[in-house]
C-alpha cells in the first residue's frame, strides 16, 4: 500500500529525516515510536505532502504509484487520510460544512457517524473552535470516518485525551481500520483479517492507544532514521520503557 524509499526531508534549513525506508501492506497497522523532535510528525507530513516538509531525496509510492510530487489533495483523493495532532481552527466553517465537503461524494449519514463519538451537538459549531483536547481528537476521527481513506495516518491520537475519550477514539480507529465488528459478525476472525484492506500508521508517545487498537508492526524513529523496524509493537514499547531510546542507537549502527 505504502512504500517509502530512502526518504530525506528538510524543514527550513534542517534535515530531519535522513533515509527512511518503510513498507506498509494492505491490512497492516504500524506503530511509530520515537523521542520528541525525532521527526515522527515530519514523516506523516511528508507522506501527505505538506509544503513545509521538503523532500530532498527518496521516493514515496502509494498503491504502486509514485506520489512524491503530488499535491496534498491529490494524495487525499488517492486514499490517504490523516488525523492531525493539533489541527487549526476554521472560523465560520462548521464541522457539518467540513464533513459535507470532505466526503468527496461518499454517501454517509453524518449524524449516524457523529453519534457514537458524542459529536452530534458539535456539528453546527466552527471546526475546532473552543474544542477541548478530546473533542478535537474525536472530531478528527469523525472527519476520517466520513473520508474513509485506505491508509490512515494518526498523529498521537491519544495526546491530551482522558481515558474515556481514548476508548471512543480507539473504537473509531478500529472502525477505520476494519478491526471492529465483534458482535453479530458472520465471518470468522481469520476471514475478517484476510478481508481487511485498510492500513494504518500510528504515532504514539505513551502507547496507551495500543490497549484499544491491535497493531502489527512497530518502529522507532531515531536521529532521522527508522530503527528496530519490524518488532512487535508491545515488545518494542516494553523495551523503550525499560531501556529508553538510547538502546535504539545500537540498532542504527
Amino acid at each position: 500500500m505504502l512504500r517509502i524509499e530512502d526518504l530525506h526531508v528538510q524543514v527550513g534549513d534542517r534535515t530531519i529525516l535522513q533515509g527512511v525506508n518503510l513498507h506498509i501492506r494492505p491490512g497492516e497497522t504500524h506503530v511509530l515510536f520515537g523521542p520528541n523532535g525525532s521527526g515522527k510528525s515530519t514523516l506523516l507530513g511528508a507522506i501527505l505532502g505538506f509544503s513545509r516538509y521538503k523532500i530532498t531525496r527518496g521516493k514515496i509510492y502509494f498503491k504502486d504509484e509514485d506520489i512524491t510530487h503530488l499535491s496534498v489533495h491529490e494524495r487525499a483523493e488517492r486514499g490517504i487520510g490523516i488525523a492531525f495532532q493539533r489541527p487549526p481552527v476554521l472560523r465560520g466553517v462548521t464541522l457539518r460544512d467540513l464533513l459535507r465537503i470532505s466526503g468527496q461524494g461518499n454517501v454517509v449519514n453524518i449524524e449516524e457517524l457523529a453519534e457514537p463519538l458524542n459529536l452530534v451537538d458539535f456539528l453546527g459549531r466552527d471546526v475546532n473552535y473552543g474544542f477541548s483536547g478530546g473533542e478535537t481528537k474525536r472530531s478528527e476521527m469523525l472527519q476520517l470516518l466520513v473520508q474513509n481513506p485506505d491508509l490512515v495516518l494518526l498523529d498521537e491520537p491519544e495526546s491530551g485525551v482522558d481515558l474515556e475519550n481514548i476508548a471512543l477514539i480507539g473504537q473509531a480507529i478500529n472502525r477505520l481500520l476494519q478491526k471492529d465488528g465483534l458482535l453479530g459478525e458472520e465471518r470468522s476472525r481469520r476471514e475478517m483479517k484476510e478481508a481487511r484492506k485498510k492500513a494504518g500508521l500510528i504515532i504514539t508517545h505513551t502507547g496507551y492507544i495500543l490497549d484499544y487498537v491491535p497493531a502489527d508492526v512497530g518502529h522507532v524513529l531515531y536521529e532521522g532514521k527508522l530503527s528496530c523496524s519490524g518488532l512487535n509493537p508491545r515488545e518494542l514499547l516494553g523495551c523503550i520503557h525499560k531501556l529508553g531510546y538510547g538502546e535504539c542507537t545500537r540498532c542504527l549502527a
Binding site: 465560520g92 466553517v93 465537503i101
Partner: peptide, 28 residues
C-alpha cells in the same frame, strides 16, 4: 494561513476550493 488550506486539502479539497471555503467562513 497555509496550515488551514492544507488541513482542508488533506480532506480532499483542491487549493482553490480550500481557499474559497476559508474565505466564505471569514465572511460568514
Amino acid at each position: 494561513a497555509e496550515e488551514e488550506i492544507e488541513y482542508l486539502m488533506a480532506r480532499g479539497l483542491t487549493e482553490e476550493e480550500a481557499t474559497a471555503t476559508i474565505v466564505r467562513g471569514f465572511l460568514n
